[in-house]
Design a protein around this nucleic acid. Structure first.
Lengths: 156, 156
DNA sequence: ACACACCCTGTAGTCGCTACAGGGTCAAGC
DNA sequence: GCTTGACCCTGTAGCGACTACAGGGTGTGT
């Protein structure tokens, strides 16, 4: 008796990954094309669930699909020593740490900005608005090239 | 004698904002349409430079264009007390702080992951790859709805 | 017989730019 | 006067990682 095949909705609720995202990963070549039923429904096996969990785990770590593709490649072809896996993680870790530092600088700037207005006056007097009209400080302007981790507007 | 009008390239080098981004802000309604020369070139006055600096400053603070639009609206129509300006900043600050916390949890997870592999073995033995095949820990999985600040892959 | 949940493909929208393609304008140098 | 090159114009498509349809087929329960 083989492992039970499941339809895409079952895989979705099993992994917490939306149906449309699963199809997207397939288009992107991260998930192999599954078998099809007579009525053309996708039929997944346990190995698909495993692979999808791998992908979603990497995504919660904010890796790009390209980084994940590389990891999956190591997973699929266990050849050379996995130094490159370490390297990828290290690089990603560096990106995350850089982004944390940027955001902390940003936070400082926002706190300073916030302190400029008590909220009582008319907005023509507002210290926040007038401060924003000045060019930004260097400390914050500079950081635009070091990181690749998304800012606060990524995931509602 | 009126303020000297400048072409888009001058405004760009004055503010450090790429030409195409300036045109984009105009399309988005953040910058008003400037006057045009006989040969249809955009001609900007000092007020445009000020407004563009305002926008760019807000962008270095990772505000969305929508948030900036709201601030510009307060700037343009100084009516009621500016509590809403404070509210917007506070909310944005909360987003940034939430994102910092997420990234710190993420960093912890990556450090833990990194420690699982010495890099000597074949990648079939790699502790990193096998750890990634497990579902992600809750602590990290949970955070997908609290913040809207981009992660590490935003700005190369 | 019908409702309703699920599945399919394909396309367009999100955000904040960035990068063309395909043209026009203008000043300097030969 | 003619060419070179830097600048300007409009319009459209691409990025990443989804998300959200539109417009259809399938499968189950009553």
């Amino acid at each position: 008796m083989r492992a039970a095949a499941m339809k895409i909705g079952e895989l979705a609720s099993l992994t917490g990954c939306p149906v449309e995202t699963i199809r997207y990963y397939e288009r992107e070549g991260l998930l192999p094309e599954p078998a099809r039923s007579a009525s053309n429904y996708r039929l997944y096996a346990g190995s698909h669930a495993e692979r999808l969990r791998f992908i979603r785990h990497c995504r919660t770590l904010d890796m790009t699909l390209d980084e994940i593709r590389t990891l999956l490649d190591y997973h699929d072809h266990p050849r050379q020593p996995c130094n490159a896996v370490n390297g990828l993680i290290d690089e990603h870790l560096a990106h995350v740490e850089a982004r944390i530092e940027q955001l902390q600088a940003l936070r400082g700037a926002l706190v300073a900005l916030r302190s400029r207005c008590s909220g009582e006056a008319d907005s023509s007097q507002c210290g926040i608005l007038s401060a924003l009209a000045q060019p930004a400080a260097e400390e914050i302007t500079a950081h635009r090239e070091s990181s690749h981790v998304p800012g606060p507007h990524g995931s509602h």
